[in-house]
Design a protein around this nucleic acid. Structure first.
Lengths: 101, 101
DNA sequence: TAACTATATGAAAATTTTTCTATATTGAAC
DNA sequence: GTTCAATATAGAAAAATTTTCATATAGTTA
């Protein structure tokens, strides 16, 4: 079976799906929300704020970093994480609006 | 557009993650893109346009329907699918912008 | 260097998704 | 009712994710 051409090509669809998959997790959404307003928090602050094991937080943070949602900067023995694309918060609020009504 | 700045509770995080997970798949993104501009297409039109097996298309469509991204209306022996929340397209274009640069 | 704190990584088990194949259902036409 | 076309669903195998637990690495201070 042959596909007609669509406006989004396969590569774009894959990358977009990968980004969405990265944020499509309650813990990772909570992390993104926690880092709103330009906040920069280290791993300890994040896992304590969210009530997670350190290793669990670290793993989710690295997924978000790998998928370009977060960046981090090491300062001494702390790694500070922050949103690389604050517009990702708009994605969340848009999705929230689809839950209304 | 301005992002909401709310602290999200567990239920909202779960529902938001579920919605995002629903669209976080290349095939389902392609379906959403295909239904832009208010288009209403039946299952045959969709699986042929995307080069999918009928059963695969039907399964992905039902996931999108179950998660409130699409609606469908049966007309005779055809089921026409359409976007329930066209704003979901903005989600995709926002994510696309995070791939630039 | 040793001890301590903060963060990252690995790997197996558990769970969830995706795909595949076949079959079931629905509605129209006869 | 039978047949055909369109769509939906079931069940199981395959693939991808998540969780858990243990350990490793990096940086600081003594």
């Amino acid at each position: 079976m042959q596909a007609k051409s669509v406006s989004l090509d396969r590569g774009i669809l894959e990358r977009t799906a990968a980004s969405l998959k990265a944020i499509a997790h309650p813990v990772r959404l909570a992390m993104i929300d926690l880092l709103r307003d330009g906040k920069r928090l280290n791993v300890t602050q994040i896992y304590q704020a969210l009530g997670l094991e350190q290793a669990v937080a670290s793993q989710h943070l690295s997924i978000l970093k790998e998928k370009n949602i977060l960046s981090s900067k090491r300062q001494g023995k702390h790694s500070y994480y922050y949103l690389k694309h604050p517009s990702i918060l708009e994605v969340i609020s848009l999705v929230l609006t689809t839950h209304e009504g």
